[in-house]
Design a protein around this nucleic acid. Structure first.
Lengths: 230, 230
DNA sequence: CGGACCTTTGACAGAGCTCAAAGTCTGTGG
DNA sequence: CCACAGACTTTGAGCTCTGTCAAAGGTCCG
């Protein structure tokens, strides 16, 4: 049956995340049972800031950008979530709106769980709570780190850090536009393009429309750069 | 007995925080029983970044500044914790080091609980988990908001926002140095001093060494400024 | 084909960081 | 009780990074 197959897929998606490894198949099945899927095409809005949170979202396929808009049209990217990554860890607990919006940047399918279903389950597994706390800790540390970088690092250095971060997560071929990089580094598209021109001159990268290829992965590694958490 | 009195104090400290209201006296007593106190004089380091976390810290009396240091000596303040406020919500769950250090900025006494004691207790009370998640959510949103403000707001505006925030928390008389304000707004002492000179000219504030008095609280209220979470 | 989006580059201006020097306050220790 | 070192405040001058505005060409999609 196709339905069974689908359920299996969901179970395999859930198992490796948040500490669900230790959980029995039967239990995972229960939770997978009351989940459902939703598809979004490239560029579609998944949720917007200020909306109440009713569901817990996990990316099944594709790529999602979670970001924040400033009052003068600026935007920063807070999280890039791929397969198996959750979009909103806090929301299900409070149900309250957050200052985050999520947008698919590829064709994406999302697994949704009602808050209650996710929570009922979570409360029974301390290790899941622990892992969520740990992730939120990283998120906070990373955000604070970015604030510091805004103060003491220049655009170029922040961009190298962004490239390094993305390389660790996605490999050497990064299919993002300069605007995407700018939103990650907290700068403008123009400054990003200028910096990229520099990097190209130095032989650090190669670039086509909508993608950057990192030529010398070792270089950034050796710089002693920390990575952000995205 | 003095000991009984002390225990009562601790219980009264714990009750209003994190959703412990609903908890019976007996249970609070249990947890207060295995806590202990520690005193720090002004300017003392309570914990440093990179240390493992063994205890959950709550401020009993005084004021604590939780901050992060950058590689070139910069520093930003992440949290100002007064009576009843916890210093490290994530630490007890993971035990892992964070990028945070805490320093008393008044003579302070802290209530400490071993991670295990705090957690054992917490896991039994979903409302506590929920409240912790909620606080962490605010912390993340606030940090992201600060990043946006670093991009699109000028030093003056960020400082007004900081003053507004502190006013809400501490009232019109703010006993902080310009360096403290700078660390909150993500700028330098000099720029802060210059901005404060402006505010003084405009009749918004009055200032002495080590304190700022906000003269027109309504003004900031009406500006439609959001506040940070500190 | 046309519009939308992305890239590229130039010129310019200004916010604010840095360095510097001097004055003021405070509390610690002799 | 006084002196002095350290911390805080104040203000100036200069410089530079980078955001803003602008113009033009390339690419993709409907």
């Amino acid at each position: 049956m196709d339905n069974i197959k689908r359920l299996d897929q969901r179970i395999e998606l859930l198992r490796p995340i948040l500490g669900f490894e230790g959980v029995t198949f039967q239990q995972l099945r229960e939770i997978a049972d009351c989940s459902f899927e939703k598809s979004y095409s490239k560029g579609e809005l998944i949720f917007d800031q200020g909306e109440k949170c009713e569901f817990f979202y996990i990316v099944m396929k594709g790529l999602v950008k979670v970001s924040i808009y400033g009052s003068s049209g600026n935007k920063i990217t807070y999280l890039l979530a791929g397969t198996g990554e959750p979009l909103n860890l806090v929301g299900p607990f409070t149900g309250n709106p957050r200052y985050l919006s999520a947008e698919s940047i590829e064709n994406t399918s999302i697994l949704l769980l009602r808050n209650e279903d996710f929570l009922a389950y979570t409360y029974r597994h301390p290790v899941v709570i622990k892992n969520i706390m740990s992730i939120l800790g990283y998120a906070i540390d990373s955000a604070n780190d970015k604030i510091l970088d805004m103060i003491e690092k220049r655009v170029e250095q922040r961009l190298i850090k962004v490239l390094h971060t993305l390389q660790k997560k996605f490999g050497q071929r990064l299919k993002f536009t300069s605007r995407d990089f700018a939103e990650l580094a907290g700068t403008t598209t123009e400054s990003t393009l200028r910096a990229m021109a520099q990097f190209r001159k130095r032989g650090m990268i190669k670039s086509n429309r909508g993608e950057i290829i990192i030529l010398d992965p070792g270089f950034m590694e050796n710089q002693g750069f920390e990575v952000y958490w995205v």
